[in-house]
Computed example of a mutant assay.
Amino acid sequence: MDLRQLKYFVQIAESGNFSRAAEVLRIAQPSLSQQMKNLEEELGVELLLRHARGVTPTEIGQQLYDHARRILEEVERTRDVLRSQSLTPSGRVSVGLPTSACRGLSLPLLAAMAERQPNITLHIVEAMTGYLDDFIQMGRLDVALLYDHKAFKHVAWTEMMVEDLMLFAPPDHPVVAQGSISFREMFALPIVLPGAPNVMRTVIEQFAARHDVVPNAMACDSLPTIARMVCSRRALAVMPHFAFSDEMARGEMVAVPIVDPTPSWRLSVVVSQRTMNARGSEAVAKVMADVIAEMVSAGVWQAKLRGDRARPEAARVPIR
């Protein structure tokens, strides 16, 4: 049994039939079938159940699949570790981007990485900040952009900026003509926020508690659905300006400032200290910080850069 056979078996199990697996692996189907026959004969067990729709792993085959996936992942991680020791950052780096920033940041980040760090392959993961925070703590992500992230010992961060939260409404909504709305008055309107434990909900609820306001709001964890709710006049949304830049450019929404007081949150570029590709992760974090600072300075991203973070070369801040 060798790594090639394990790779073939995993692909067959995931594809559900030999022909599809052969296409993905770019080998002839008879050769693939022979490899699996040899593997079953070597192990003395039946690994795959053949049927009209394709194949499924037997009980023993499922055990082999679980072990094989872990082995292949560990081989890939080992390869990344060794590559990361070279002078030039390289290998695969997983990057978590919050839903509210992913649409606007992912393409500029990918373009900048292709230009500045072409030997690094990015794996972008989009999710709500709470999930990304957990993933970075566990080492399932190498780098992430997080809002008001939790401070744990297994990460290091660069606090990039402070972003004001705004109220989004259709262009013909009466609140747009007002020009602004107070934080307290806002909750007399139908408001939609992500549900708990999303960071947005937590920030708004804690901010409301400090100002003796009851934050009555619907819950929805889908940014596209929130956008549709606003456009259809079912609710108004509280989000950072950057979250709905596409909709505003198309004239579908208007961002109304929230005043007396204005809620805000902090954004940080976070690096897991459990990463298997430290050199690559640091390089990605640096490029991400550069890109964000450039977008803010150009007015594409409306936010306030933090002190010396206004310079793209700002240094990383380790957690105590």
Results as ranks from 00 to 15, higher is better:
residue 313 E to Y: 15
residue 295 M to N: 00
residue 224 P to G: 02
residue 115 E to P: 01
residue 270 V to P: 09
residue 270 V to G: 08
residue 269 V to G: 04
residue 3 L to I: 11
residue 314 A to V: 15
residue 249 A to M: 05
residue 99 T to S: 12
residue 205 E to A: 14
residue 310 A to K: 07
residue 136 I to L: 11
residue 38 N to I: 12
residue 213 V to G: 00
residue 70 R to K: 15
residue 212 D to G: 04
residue 40 E to A: 03
residue 301 W to N: 00
residue 280 G to Y: 03
residue 285 A to S: 14
residue 229 M to F: 05
residue 281 S to N: 08
residue 231 C to F: 03
residue 146 L to E: 08
residue 304 K to D: 12
residue 67 H to M: 07
residue 160 M to G: 01
residue 219 A to L: 12
residue 159 E to G: 09
residue 84 S to A: 15
residue 88 T to E: 11
residue 62 Q to G: 10
residue 69 R to E: 04
residue 288 M to W: 05
residue 188 A to N: 15
residue 192 V to G: 06
residue 218 M to S: 08
residue 220 C to E: 07
residue 98 P to V: 03
residue 113 M to N: 04
residue 180 S to K: 13
residue 246 D to S: 11
residue 231 C to W: 07
residue 168 F to Y: 07
residue 87 L to K: 12
residue 57 P to K: 00
residue 42 E to Y: 06
residue 46 E to V: 14
residue 266 R to C: 10
residue 259 V to P: 05
residue 149 H to T: 10
residue 283 A to W: 03
residue 319 I to W: 10
residue 180 S to A: 06
residue 246 D to K: 11
residue 79 R to S: 09
residue 264 S to F: 07
residue 312 P to C: 08
residue 236 L to K: 07
residue 58 T to P: 00
residue 8 Y to W: 05
residue 120 I to W: 02
residue 202 T to Y: 06
residue 9 F to H: 02
residue 65 Y to P: 02
residue 284 V to C: 03
residue 69 R to F: 00
residue 234 R to S: 12
residue 52 A to V: 12
residue 274 R to K: 10
residue 83 R to C: 09
residue 272 S to V: 14
residue 268 S to Y: 08
residue 35 Q to L: 06
residue 96 G to C: 06
residue 185 E to A: 15
residue 167 L to F: 02
residue 175 V to E: 01
residue 144 A to T: 03
residue 69 R to Q: 09
residue 3 L to R: 07
residue 251 G to H: 01
residue 118 P to S: 04
residue 265 W to L: 14
residue 240 P to E: 06
residue 107 L to E: 13
residue 67 H to F: 13
residue 62 Q to E: 12
residue 18 F to H: 04
residue 76 E to Y: 08
residue 29 Q to S: 12
residue 82 L to Q: 11
residue 79 R to G: 03
residue 34 Q to H: 10
residue 229 M to D: 00
residue 190 P to N: 04
residue 28 A to N: 14
residue 270 V to D: 06
residue 143 V to E: 03
residue 85 Q to K: 13
residue 44 G to F: 06
residue 104 G to L: 13
residue 111 A to F: 05
residue 7 K to S: 14
residue 1 M to K: 01
residue 246 D to V: 08
residue 80 D to G: 06
residue 3 L to F: 09
residue 119 N to L: 14
residue 158 T to A: 11
residue 300 V to G: 01
residue 182 S to G: 09
residue 183 F to V: 05
residue 249 A to T: 07
residue 282 E to D: 14
residue 210 R to S: 14
residue 216 N to E: 07
residue 293 A to E: 00
residue 23 E to P: 02
residue 83 R to V: 15
residue 57 P to R: 00
residue 293 A to L: 04
residue 254 V to D: 02
residue 223 L to E: 06
residue 213 V to M: 01
residue 197 P to I: 15
residue 272 S to M: 11
residue 160 M to W: 06
residue 147 Y to M: 09
residue 178 Q to L: 15
residue 35 Q to T: 14
residue 33 S to I: 15
residue 313 E to W: 14
residue 253 M to F: 14
residue 116 R to W: 08
residue 214 V to K: 10
residue 65 Y to A: 07
residue 165 L to E: 04
residue 271 V to Y: 01
residue 52 A to Q: 08
residue 195 G to W: 12
residue 90 S to N: 04
residue 170 P to H: 09
residue 136 I to W: 00
residue 54 G to I: 10
residue 231 C to S: 11
residue 60 I to L: 10
residue 99 T to V: 14
residue 206 Q to L: 13
residue 30 P to Q: 04
residue 64 L to G: 01
residue 190 P to T: 11
residue 241 H to V: 03
residue 163 E to T: 13
residue 82 L to Y: 13
residue 238 V to C: 01
residue 54 G to A: 11
residue 122 L to Q: 05
